[in-house]
Design a protein around this nucleic acid. Structure first.
Length: 317
DNA sequence: AACTGTGACAACCGCTCTGCT
DNA sequence: GAGCAGAGCGGTTGTCACAGT
């Protein structure tokens, strides 16, 4: 079937977003909430396709997302989740509520893949079995084979994750790890079987993302400071230090410098919800640990009683 | 100082999935 | 059940910044 283009190519702007466009989009979403992306370009007058608007929002403008500076915990988690889930970045991102799938994907492609390739025996990384349980490999298989491969992948990943958890437990849990652990429920609900709901990035009620004004503040702060390269404004505007600095101040102050001209941004998002990053719940961790360690004593549940899904479903955070 | 190579990241593209009619 | 539209996902590309020569 010939698929029509996702959007009318005529008159649709492409390339980096300008601060003005960001503002328009943010203002619109602040007013109407994310969703109904089809209507966004027409209602806002943005010369962008709906897809582009959604991506811009989810990958950059959405409040509560953290950029750059992946912690060791996050790195480990990503590595092991990648082994567990394959290249399903949205699913992986659901374990890291402050990170976008695009961010994680980029981080994987630019840092971790190389790292694993370099550190491993060459079998790791992209070509390694652990790193490619992905659809490509699975797609070519029949359903039975698919399930077997999936189980193999799960077994392998389970061991890897077990090791990771063990090492993480040796270290004092950091907020990031806490967030990751605390958000397991989202991922559980978003288990491979229901990946279409993805990271539930756009649904305020579902994701409960950390909607603060901090991101907007950061964004505007960046613009105010440079005002130079348009789309780089918010896009690359937050150097490591300032990012962490503003993150630490979180929603406390809203000093944009240009806020006077932006009255629409003075109030928090109406659908602002509680932070999705919660303290690690020991019982939750122990639940997954019990699953992870299930085969240590020779009991391998595979996909019967002790499937990953079952274990995941046991999580009710 | 100019040029080149490389890394990082934002954005696009095409496909799949889901919900609605 | 079929067809369609919208939304989401993963792979890939384009662009910019910076380091090295």
């Amino acid at each position: 079937m010939v698929r029509p283009p996702c959007c009318d190519k005529e008159g649709v702007k492409k390339g980096p977003w300008t601060p003005e466009e960001d503002l328009v989009l943010v203002s619109y979403i602040q007013e109407h909430g994310p969703g109904n992306w089809r209507a966004v370009p027409t209602r806002t007058g943005l010369m962008r396709c709906s897809k582009s608007c959604r991506l811009r929002w989810t990958n950059y403008l959405r409040p509560g997302i953290k950029r750059g500076n992946f912690t060791d915990q996050e790195e480990k988690l990503i590595v092991h989740l990648q082994a567990l889930l394959g290249n399903r970045w949205a699913a992986i991102a659901s374990y890291l509520p402050e990170r976008t799938d695009n961010d994680i994907k980029n981080f994987w492609n630019t840092h971790l893949k190389r790292k694993l390739q370099g550190g491993g025996d060459g079998g790791e990384g992209d070509g390694g079995a652990a790193s490619k349980p992905s659809t490509q490999r699975l797609a070519s298989s029949s359903k039975g084979q698919w399930e077997r491969q999936l189980q193999t992948d799960i077994d392998m990943a389970r061991r890897a994750l077990r090791e990771a958890l063990t090492s993480i437990h040796d270290v004092k849990p950091l907020p990031d790890a806490a967030g990751a652990a605390g958000s397991l429920s989202g991922a559980a609900a978003d288990s491979p079987a229901s990946s279409s709901s993805g990271a539930s990035q756009c649904s305020p009620s579902a994701s409960g993302y950390v909607l603060t004004t901090a991101n907007i503040s950061r964004m505007l702060d960046g613009w105010a400071r440079k005002g130079g390269r348009p789309s780089s404004g918010p896009a690359t505007p937050v150097p490591a230090e300032s990012a962490s600095a503003s993150a630490s101040s979180e929603a406390s102050e809203v000093s944009y410098g240009v806020s006077a001209t932006l009255p629409v941004l003075t109030s928090p998002f109406e659908y602002e919800t509680k932070p999705s990053v919660t303290a690690p719940d020991q019982t939750q961790l122990s639940a997954i640990e019990s699953w992870l360690f299930a085969d240590v004593d020779g009991v391998d549940h595979h996909l019967q009683g002790g499937s990953l899904l079952d274990a995941a479903m046991d999580y009710t955070f």
